[in-house]
C-alpha cells in the first residue's frame, strides 16, 4: 500500500469539501472493500478522508418510511427491530452476505459502493476495462463462471457482488447523496449502472458526492409477511452468490396482489425482475405461476462459456425463493 494523506473530519460539509479538492481522494468508511483494494494495488489514493465520525449513523422511522444513515453498519441495519419487522427482506439479504465481522465494519453507503469481485478486476497482471479502461475484458473469453447474464457489454461482464443491494432494489430504496453542488436523491434503480462503454463507472454518483442515507418507502413495508432471500453459492456461508433472489410478496386470499423481486449475481447492478412482478400480480399462489414468472424473468439472458448453468440455476432459484416466501416449500 502506498503512503497517502489521512484526515478524519467531524462534519459532512468538511468531508465533501475536502474530497472536492483532491482529484485522487477517496472516502473511507468501513474499509472492508477499499482497504482490500488498496492492498491489491487497485486503488492508489493520494488522500483518504475517513468519514467514520460523521453524524450519518442514525436509523429511524420517518413519515415516509425508514431512514438509514449511510454510516450505519450492515449489522446495525440487519439487527434493527423495526427493519426486521417491516423490511425483513433487507435484514435477510444483509445477513446472507460476507461474515459477521465484515458486516460489523461494512456500512450501508460502502455496501452500495462495493466493487465487483471479478477476478480479472482484482489482479493487476490481467486485463480489465473496469480497473484499467482500454486494457480489455479478461472475463469475456476467460473463466466467467461468476459472471453476468443480463445487461453486460463486450467491455465488461462483471456482476455487482452485494446482497444488500438486491434487497434495496426490490424495496424501491432511494439513495440520498450530497456534494459541493448540494444534496440530491437517486432511485436505487438509477444508482448502479450497466457497464456499456464505461465499465469503470459502477454508479451514477458524481465526483465528490457522498452518500448520506438510504431511505425506504412506507409502501415497501407492506411486503413483510411473505419474504425470502435465497442465495446459492459454492459453500454454505461466507461466499459470493452464484445467483441470489430477493422475493417479497403481498398476498390476499391466496392471490398475489403485489410482488417485489430482484436477483443478484446476474448483472452489473441488482437486477429487478419487473416483468415477472407484473405477471405475478393477480395470480394465484402456485408453482406453475412461479415457473411462468421465472421464465419471463429470464427473457434476454445471455450466458458465456462457463456460466451457462446460471440459465437453469437462476430460474430455479426464482421458483424456489417464491415457494419459500409463500410457504410452498420449507
Amino acid at each position: 500500500m502506498n503512503q497517502f494523506q489521512y484526515t478524519r473530519p467531524a462534519e459532512t460539509a468538511v468531508a465533501v469539501k475536502s474530497l472536492a479538492k483532491e482529484p485522487n481522494g477517496y472516502f473511507l468508511a468501513g474499509g472492508t472493500n477499499l482497504v482490500d483494494m488498496m492492498k491489491m494495488g487497485l486503488v492508489v489514493p493520494d488522500k483518504l478522508i475517513d468519514i467514520n465520525r460523521l453524524p450519518l449513523k442514525k436509523i429511524e422511522k420517518t413519515a415516509t418510511g425508514m431512514h438509514i444513515g449511510a454510516l450505519a453498519s450492515n449489522s446495525e441495519v440487519a439487527e434493527h427491530a423495526y427493519i426486521k419487522a417491516q423490511y425483513p427482506l433487507l435484514a435477510l439479504a444483509i445477513n446472507a452476505g460476507a461474515s459477521p465481522q465484515l458486516r460489523n465494519m461494512a456500512t450501508v453507503g460502502g455496501n452500495l459502493m462495493q466493487r465487483t469481485r471479478c477476478p480479472y478486476f482484482f489482479d493487476t497482471a490481467m486485463p480489465c476495462n473496469k480497473r484499467t479502461p482500454g486494457s480489455g475484458c479478461g472475463a469475456l473469453e476467460g473463466i466467467n463462471r461468476m459472471h453476468a447474464l443480463f445487461g453486460a457489454s463486450d467491455k465488461c461482464i462483471a456482476v455487482n457482488p452485494s446482497d444488500m443491494n438486491v434487497a434495496l432494489a426490490a424495496l424501491d430504496a432511494t439513495i440520498h447523496v450530497t456534494g459541493v453542488k448540494g444534496p440530491r436523491a437517486i432511485k436505487i434503480g438509477d444508482f448502479h449502472r450497466l457497464p456499456g462503454d464505461h465499465p469503470e463507472l459502477d454508479n451514477t454518483l458524481q465526483k465528490g458526492e457522498l452518500i448520506t442515507s438510504v431511505d425506504l418507502p412506507t409502501a415497501s413495508s407492506a411486503y413483510n409477511k411473505h419474504v425470502y432471500y435465497l442465495k446459492i453459492r459454492d459453500r454454505t456461508s461466507y461466499a459470493f452468490a452464484l445467483v441470489s433472489v430477493a422475493a417479497a410478496l403481498h398476498i390476499e386470499n391466496n392471490t398475489i396482489t403485489g410482488a417485489r423481486l430482484a436477483m443478484g449475481g446476474v448483472a452489473h447492478k441488482p437486477w429487478r425482475l419487473s416483468t415477472a412482478e407484473t405477471f405475478l400480480k393477480g395470480k394465484a399462489v402456485n408453482e406453475d405461476n412461479f415457473k411462468h414468472a421465472a421464465q419471463i424473468a429470464m427473457q434476454g439472458a445471455k450466458a458465456y462459456e462457463y456460466n451457462k448453468f446460471k440459465l437453469k440455476l437462476a430460474p430455479n432459484a426464482i421458483v424456489q425463493s417464491l415457494k419459500l416466501a409463500t410457504g410452498l416449500a420449507s
Partner: peptide, 12 residues
C-alpha cells in the same frame, strides 16, 4: 464489536 483487524486502518 468483533471486526477483522486486517481491514481496519489503525488510525480509524
Amino acid at each position: 464489536v468483533r471486526v477483522n483487524s486486517c481491514l481496519s486502518l489503525a488510525l480509524t
